[in-house]
Simulated scan of single mutants.
Amino acid sequence: MANTPFRHLASRITGDRARALDPEEERVLDKMNERLPISRDAADVADERSTIGERLADRVAAIGGSWGFIIAFTCVLVGWMLLNSDVLTHWGHAFDPYPYIFLNLLLSTLAAIQAPVIMMSQNRQASKDRLAASLDYEVNLRTELEILRLHEKLDVAIAERLDQLLAATVDTAR
């Protein structure tokens, strides 16, 4: 990055660290120099970076962790048990009679697949949280640098005005 007024301000603020700025700090200085906004929506950035598998894991976790899924799954289980119970199969044609071994196999398979998918979604959410924290840091750094720059401008303007007043006072005293 070229030596800009913002680089000079950052070097004054950070001291010796100015030569080894983090990528986020470099990005903030670049955006300040270009007079562009730094804020970005963390959800949009995360969605841009996500793969098809990650989006699928999010959908599975969203569906599997909903009341609609729990109610529908309970209805399926009750229906399965009723179809294979002695109540409705008085002809003796139950395809999975009590103790519902096939149903247990299906439930175990579902749990074995659903648990890692939900964990993938949780890992992705943690990654989104880290990204949001990083973006917040960039915005906060930009804000801090802009405030310091404004303070510097005000200090210079006040010093110039005081010099003018002092010069006018000296001239009127003569």
Rank of each mutant, 00 (worst) to 15 (best):
I71M: 10
M120K: 09
P97Q: 02
E138M: 08
Q122F: 14
L77V: 09
E146N: 02
L131C: 01
S66V: 05
M119I: 11
H151F: 15
V87S: 08
L150S: 14
A126S: 12
L77C: 07
F102V: 13
S108T: 10
Y100G: 07
A112I: 03
Q164R: 14
L145W: 15
N84S: 01
L135Q: 06
L141W: 05
A72W: 11
A132S: 09
N140S: 13
I147M: 15
D86I: 00
I158D: 15
L162T: 12
Y100T: 00
I113A: 06
N104L: 15
S108G: 14
A159C: 06
L162I: 07
V117T: 04
L82R: 00
S85D: 04
L154F: 11
Y137S: 08
A126E: 11
P116T: 00
A133Y: 05
L131V: 01
Q125D: 11
Q164I: 13
G68V: 00
C75N: 10
A132Y: 02
L77D: 04
I70W: 14
T109C: 12
V87C: 10
V117I: 15
R149V: 01
L145G: 03
A132H: 10
S66I: 04
L131K: 15
P97W: 08
Y98P: 10
L148T: 10
E146G: 03
Q114D: 11
L106D: 05
L166Q: 10
L110F: 10
D163H: 07
L88D: 02
N140R: 14
V139Y: 12
K128D: 03
S134Q: 09
L107Q: 06
L154E: 08
E146W: 03
G64W: 10
S121H: 02
S66Q: 03
I158W: 08
T89V: 01
A115Q: 11
T109L: 14
I118N: 03
S134D: 03
G65T: 13
L83A: 03
I158C: 07
R142D: 02
L165Q: 12
R161Y: 12
Q114Y: 09
R149P: 05
L103R: 10
S134G: 03
A159N: 15
F102W: 15
Y137Q: 06
L88E: 05
D155C: 08
G92D: 00
E138S: 04
G92H: 02
N140A: 15
D155Y: 14
L148F: 10
P116C: 07
S134H: 00
E160F: 08
D163P: 00
G64E: 05
L82G: 01
N140Q: 14
E152K: 11
T143E: 13
L154T: 07
L135W: 12
I101H: 05
L145C: 07
E138L: 05
H93W: 06
L131E: 09
Q164S: 12
A133C: 01
